[in-house]
């Protein structure tokens, strides 16, 4: 499984504009870390489409792309629509970023 994630916008949008997305491959992770990631991904896959509030300003948005077995799933959230599961996944990814 390969997970790619990117952050956009926010107060520091000018800085983020030039930053490339980050990526992690479970093949390159220890087995327990790979299992943790798989669990977090499964929990973050939204059961319903996210509602995008139009009035949030300076909120960052996040795109996490999960490629697994030929399938690709894209998860998106913003600071104003963050779920605990999405936040946990993002947090884990940032902590393990290469």
């Amino acid at each position: 499984m390969k997970v790619t994630w990117a952050t956009h916008g926010g107060q520091a949008a000018g800085i983020r504009l030039s930053l490339p997305p980050k990526a992690l491959d479970t093949d390159a992770l220890p087995a327990n870390a790979a299992a943790e990631l798989a669990e977090l991904v499964a929990a973050a896959v939204p059961v319903a489409e996210e509602e995008r509030p139009s009035r949030a300003r300076d909120a960052m948005s996040y795109t996490i792309t999960v490629e697994d077995g030929g399938r690709s799933t894209v998860l998106t959230r913003s600071d104003a629509t963050m779920t605990p599961a999405f936040a946990a996944l993002l947090d884990w990814l940032e902590e393990h970023a290469p």
Partner: peptide
Amino acid sequence: HFGRRFNNAFWDGRQMV
């Protein structure tokens, strides 16, 4: 103290974070 290592501040339409 929103989130962990959160590099931002925003207005969510009603309050400041």
